[in-house]
Design a protein around this nucleic acid. Sequence first.
RNA 1: GGACAGGUGGCCGAGUGGUUUAAGGCGCACGCCUGGAAAGCGUGUGGGGGUGAAAGCCUCUCGCGGGUUCGAAUCCCGCCCUGUCCGCCA
Length: 379
Amino acid sequence: MEELLAARTAVSGTVAAAKQSGNDAKAQARMAEGREIGDRIKVAEARRAETEGELTSLLLQFPNVPLPDVPTGGESANVVVRSWGTPRLGEGLRPHWDLGETLGILDLARGAKVAGAGFVTLRGEGSRLARALVQLMLDLHTREHGYEEVAIPFAVNRAAMIGTGQFPKFEDEQYAIRDADLFLIPTAEVPITNLYRDEILDAAWLPHGFAAYSPCFRREAGAAGKDTRGLLRVHQFDKVELVRYCTPEESAHELERLTAHAEAVLTRLGLPYRVVLLAAGDTGFASAKTYDLEVWAPGVGRWLEVSSCSTCTDFQARRANIRYRSAPGKPPRFIHTLNGSGVAIPRVLAAILEHYQEPDGTVRVPDALRPYLGADRLE
RNA sequence: GGACAGGUGGCCGAGUGGUUUAAGGCGCACGCCUGGAAAGCGUGUGGGGGUGAAAGCCUCUCGCGGGUUCGAAUCCCGCCCUGUCCGCCA
């Protein structure tokens, strides 16, 4: 291919030279020669483009490779690496949907009426509680953990979805905006990680953390019938997301930091939780290693996943072409990206209702939330 | 949504079919000069791919994609983005 291109350039040069010296016959001959080379270039280029297209679409199908310290196997091979707090146990603890409806802060029926099952409406103190949680988390991460807060688009284009790994494999799981080629974000990770797509960053800027509030939209195709009650699995939910950009050398340590930042939310709220290292088979498509944070919800008697902290190593950076330069003159290298919820609002709200419920049906407000809510009890 | 104007290297900016390695400037880096600095002078200064031990060399890249042509930053078509004005709207 390159030889052909070089040959064309050479022949074009002789055409120019021949014309200038007034040698029309020679110019004509050279032009014919050039035409022939041009035809061969078209054929070769078409084949190259086709092959390259096939290769790219094939490569986009491959998931990230788990790190060596990730256990092999499926969900049953997950490992609880630590836990915090004492799960509340006892008879008569009510599930959050029961408490929420009784308190008048959760309106599942009317949410379903306007958008469908899985779209929840919070009311009154419920709505304020959700807002207080967002506020608490953003304040914590920006003031104490050093994150830069960003307010990002809630819809993204196709390139962004490819960059973080949702597309092409999981296009069915996203909400698409008809006729616009835009997609509602399943997590703020998508817009935040893509902020620096096709850029080369200065090493001095790394590591850098972003925190953002956003709603998240998920079709949950294939999950129909599972966890459908209350706030456990919904099509739209609010979340504070953490994303970190760093060098490859930093990423292992950065994952521990990120996880600790998300955990701080739960300790601040006084909610018992455990940290689960996911086995390879349970780790997400873009992730090389993931810790799930699960909070105890005594009303439903289950651990609820409220955060998934992952290092994507250079997987997303390669797709989104995000690089950095370690020093002037050095060739650019791919950064590593990490993300984790810090944390998801509905499930943590459910856990608060269930964990802090009183026998009389009221709910104590965790100390950390009182300044934000201006109340110490929901009744 | 409509009209117009634009998109060129880190930045500004010239370039409207070929002597092609994209002028010039700014910034930056290094060197010379200096007691030291500034100024001045000189050299260098994006990314991808290939080749090589390295220096280097080859090649692609002027918003993106197609087309015309022997040859495209330059001409044609489509799209994206930015600006200005109009319309609409929180």
